[in-house]
Computed example of a mutant assay.
Amino acid sequence: MVQYSRTRLDASFAALSDATRRGVLEQLGRADASITELAEKFHMTLTGMKKHVGVLEQAGLVTTEKVGRVRTCKLGLRELEEEAAWIERYRQLWDARFNELDKVVEELKRKEQADGRKKT
């Protein structure tokens, strides 16, 4: 069984659980941006955006660099391979469960059709 770093997964999924933070990642995927630019884009205060960026930075999804008074954000170097593997494991589990459910439903339909033919 694949071993996952619980702390890393917790930090990543906590960071990704917020729509604003996901939006920040999408924005940074297009171009680096200052915290001020991000705050304006998402219609929030600098303090609020700093908190969001801090969560993303703690998870390793964003890096920041301060030059003078401007803090520039860019996507972190870390990829989400571990998180994707965790999600894939559960996707496969649910696929298998739904496939089994489909078999049960199909069997019930066959029985229902067979019972319907016997009555006529």
Rank of each mutant, 00 (worst) to 15 (best):
E65G: 08
A33I: 07
F98T: 10
D10K: 09
H52A: 00
A11S: 12
A14S: 13
G68A: 01
L108M: 10
V70P: 02
C73V: 08
D10A: 11
V70I: 15
E100Q: 15
K109P: 01
K111I: 12
E81A: 11
T36C: 04
L77Q: 13
L46T: 06
E65I: 09
R69M: 07
L28W: 05
G23N: 02
S12W: 12
S34L: 01
R71Q: 14
S34E: 02
K74C: 02
A96G: 10
R21W: 02
I35S: 05
L108I: 11
L93C: 08
E40N: 13
L46K: 12
D18N: 14
R71D: 07
G54V: 03
K111Y: 11
Y4G: 05
L46W: 05
D102V: 09
Q3E: 15
A11L: 11
A15L: 03
T120M: 09
S12M: 13
E112M: 13
R117S: 08
T36G: 12
F98H: 09
V53K: 01
S17L: 05
G68H: 07
G76V: 06
S5G: 12
E83S: 09
T20A: 06
A15T: 01
A14L: 14
K119E: 10
K109S: 06
V62K: 00
E107V: 08
A114D: 13
K118Q: 15
K50Y: 10
R69E: 15
K51V: 10
E81C: 01
D32L: 08
A85M: 14
A84C: 07
R30Q: 14
T120G: 15
V104C: 04
T36N: 09
A14F: 12
Y90R: 15
K66P: 05
H52L: 00
R71I: 14
E57K: 13
V70C: 04
E40V: 10
V104G: 02
E26C: 10
K109Y: 07
S12T: 15
L75Q: 03
S12L: 15
G116A: 13
R117V: 14
H43Q: 12
E112N: 08
E107D: 14
A39G: 00
N99F: 07
T36R: 13
K111H: 10
E107P: 02
T7C: 06
F42V: 01
V105F: 02
V2M: 13
E37Y: 00
L9Q: 00
L28M: 05
